[in-house]
């Protein structure tokens, strides 16, 4: 059971209150009609799926109902930070590699 800090509610709440919503920072194409099949497939289906530091979106479904981002290690499941949509992460794969 993960304990997740919702940056909106400013509280640590149980994983069951949240819904995972996939990789974070995916930019919706501004002109989807101009994309090639490769670009459109990449946007829809291809994800980073890293073994290690992952930036992802969570939805506080049973709480405030709002979205936020989290940086989580996909091997240890440790959540390094949660932050607001629109903000940049403090922890990245590069910074984690440097600190290890």
């Amino acid at each position: 059971m993960l304990l997740i800090h919702c940056p909106h509610c400013r509280e640590d709440r149980e994983e069951e209150e949240f819904h995972y919503s996939g990789e974070a920072h995916i930019v919706r194409p501004l002109e989807p009609e101009n994309l090639s099949d490769e670009e459109w497939g990449d946007y829809l289906f291809f994800r980073k799926n890293p073994r290690g530091i992952h930036h992802e979106m969570w939805h506080h479904t049973a709480g405030c109902g709002r979205y936020f981002y989290a940086t989580r290690n996909t091997v240890s499941y440790q959540i390094l930070e949660t932050y607001m949509v629109g903000e940049k992460p403090q922890h990245t794969a590069d910074s984690a590699g440097a600190s290890q």
């Binding site: 993960l2 995972y20 073994r51």
Partner: peptide, 13 residues
């Protein structure tokens, strides 16, 4: 489980 993971374990719920 609801989220990506390589940990070979999951959530109790």
């Amino acid at each position: 489980d609801g989220y990506n993971g390589y940990g070979q374990r999951g959530s109790f719920h």
